[in-house]
Design a protein around this nucleic acid. Structure first.
Length: 568
DNA sequence: GCCGTTTTCGGCCCGACTGTTTTCAGTCG
């Protein structure tokens, strides 16, 4: 059982323990343990197998979770989890996902009414049974009915890029509000998470009500979920939630810090404050003994009050940022302008829409110094993938075009060559040997067992003509899981053979993810951020890759295509 | 369940909003 699976078990334990009304700190311990294992540098199995190591020395993992991890590695399952699953009815878990219903209310509803499905719950609402229960009322019943439709609308986290579009629209609308003097987005959107569950807007306004009224006038406004003196939550479109907080200007930094999160980062921040005799909330930093305020206007002040430098939002996940901040060794994160090359794009020779010249001109317009044309190889027949003959024709074309771009743009002869299902590359070695840049990717046989698909990718890495592994896990966010690949082995091989690994910047891929990127950085494997553009506009997704790279803690030096070709 | 240059027990971030309560629990972030 790998780390991700163990972490999932602990997360599920935490979720289920809540329904038992367990001590919240015990529940948090499971969540923390899951996080610790998910972000571990090396596999739990390897640590357990080494008698000189002790898993329970890992922060967040104590004796109990270490033992449970051992059981999971050994047997692949955990008796306590099986017991909990049997104990908590599925419908109770489903009910708790309805906005406004939590574990406690869900348990009570299920037990008192003997519900077996969400359909039963709807029926109970319609028959006015819920309003009669102690602790429930007419409003709760109406909210449940409402929430049921929202849950059925399958509200899932949206891509960061979609959240970015929405934030820009709402931002433009809010900018026309006279009452608002300052405005900033917070939350997971500001942290650049690959998906965003809701948007958090922070504003300074002399008239709170006017600012809230203005938000309720947004074009796609659907409904107000809650509204108080300082906070309003609305739904836009089908089911997406937008929260807005109104604060005073001298609280702005503390509020921004607080609403940016993550929750784990905030808990850590506040614990550090407490240790120094301070209390942090969204209004500022206060001395515990006399309640006097010591900071709050800017985030820099807030962090400075606990003797830390400002921490970039992308790093605020309580991973290593506090350790680095304390040593004043936080990375200077890569910026969009640092990238000068794009080494993954398609043309109309296969499934792209633009010609080589059109892609080249668009690249120049975006400030790039070099690009690689990397169309598909023949195995991708649906995309009319290139065989050796057509590929060499394309390269001949590139030779002919190159002089036109002399001194402006280097056009590299590349290929995105498939790694075949049975192993081996889709094109002959002597052909690949003529390329400037060879991406190797898996498109078929994605569901192969771990050993098999790992072997395929390792084989590609060992091929002397392959320069980079493209979209190394194949995942499509919210749509397709990653290959079951042993990423530790892939990285070790990439390191050994001096190969690059791609961060595919397509907002649906973002592959490698942030944790892989951090691991690659530690292993000193050079990352290449590429757009995988299939059109001129496709080149614009580079910004999403940069966001992801920042979350992985990557600097300009960690990313190869910030350097002039040949990037060494 | 985790953790410890004051502790192996007693803490564990902090507050807004809602609904159903007469003072607060549940939910959310």
């Amino acid at each position: 059982m790998d780390n991700a699976a163990i972490a999932d078990v602990f997360d599920e334990m935490a979720e289920l323990l809540e329904f038992r009304g367990e001590n919240p700190f015990r529940i948090r311990a499971y969540t923390n343990g899951a996080k610790a294992i998910r972000e571990l540098d090396e596999s739990v199995a390897a640590i357990l197998a080494d008698p000189s190591r002790d898993l329970s020395k890992t922060p967040g993992i104590g004796k109990t979770l270490a033992e449970k991890s051992a059981v999971l590695v050994e047997t692949g399952s955990l008796p306590q989890l099986i017991q909990l699953r049997a104990e908590i009815p599925e419908v109770t878990i489903q009910m708790a996902r309805i906005p406004g219903l939590g574990a406690k209310k869900a348990v009570k509803l299920q037990q008192e009414l003997g519900l077996e499905s969400l359909g039963d719950l709807r029926k109970a609402c319609q028959e006015d049974q819920i309003a009669k229960l102690k602790g429930f009322g007419a409003k709760t019943q109406a909210a449940i009915l409402d929430g049921l439709s929202i849950a059925e609308a399958a509200a899932e986290r949206i891509y960061w890029s979609s959240a970015d579009d929405l934030a820009r629209h709402i931002g433009e609308h809010m900018a026309t509000c006279q009452a608002i003097s300052k405005m900033e987005w917070a939350g997971s959107y500001r942290r650049g998470r690959e998906t965003v569950g809701d948007l958090d807007l922070l504003v300074v306004a002399d008239d709170h009500a006017a600012a809230m009224d203005h938000l309720e006038c947004y074009a796609a406004y659907a409904q107000t979920i809650g509204r108080g003196d300082t906070k309003i939550s609305i739904r836009v479109g089908k089911s997406f939630q937008v929260d807005m907080r109104v604060v005073e200007v001298d609280q702005f930094g503390a509020a921004l810090q607080y609403f940016t999160g993550s929750q784990a980062h905030n808990i850590h921040t506040r614990r550090l404050a407490k240790e120094q005799g301070l209390k942090i909330n969204e209004y500022g930093v206060f001395k515990i003994d006399d309640d006097s305020k010591v900071a709050g206007a800017t985030e820099e002040d807030v962090y400075a009050s606990i003797r830390l430098p400002w921490i970039a939002p992308e790093l605020r996940e309580d991973r290593r940022e506090f350790e680095l901040a304390a040593k004043n060794t936080l990375p200077v994160l890569i910026e969009v302008g640092d990238v000068i090359g794009d080494l993954h794009m398609h043309t109309n020779a296969t499934d792209g829409t633009a010609t080589i010249r059109e892609m080249a001109d668009a690249a120049i317009a975006r400030g790039l110094k070099y690009i690689a044309i990397t169309d598909h190889s023949k195995r991708v027949s649906m995309a009319m993938g290139l065989d050796e003959i057509r590929l060499r024709e394309q390269w001949k074309q590139i030779d002919e075009i190159r002089p036109e771009y002399e001194g402006r743009l280097m056009i590299l002869k590349g290929i995105e060559c498939d790694i075949l299902e049975k192993g081996g590359m889709d094109l002959a070695d002597e052909c690949l040997a003529e390329a400037d840049w060879v991406l190797a990717s898996v498109h078929y046989g994605q569901k192969q067992p771990r050993d098999q698909i790992t072997e395929r990718i390792l084989g590609a890495i060992e091929n002397p003509h392959v320069t980079c592994i493209a979209h190394p896990t194949g995942r499509l966010i919210n749509r397709r899981p990653p290959y079951d690949v042993d990423m530790d082995a892939v990285m070790a091989a990439a390191k050994k053979h001096g190969k690059f690994m791609e961060l595919n910047a397509n907002p649906a891929r973002l592959d490698l993810n942030d944790l892989h990127l951090a691991a690659a950085k530690r292993a000193e494997i050079p990352i290449v951020i590429s757009t995988d553009a299939h059109s001129i506009d496709g080149l614009d997704v580079m910004q999403y890759g940069i966001k992801q790279a920042r979350r992985g803690g990557l600097t300009k030096a960690d990313v190869a295509n910030t350097r002039p070709w040949p990037m060494r």
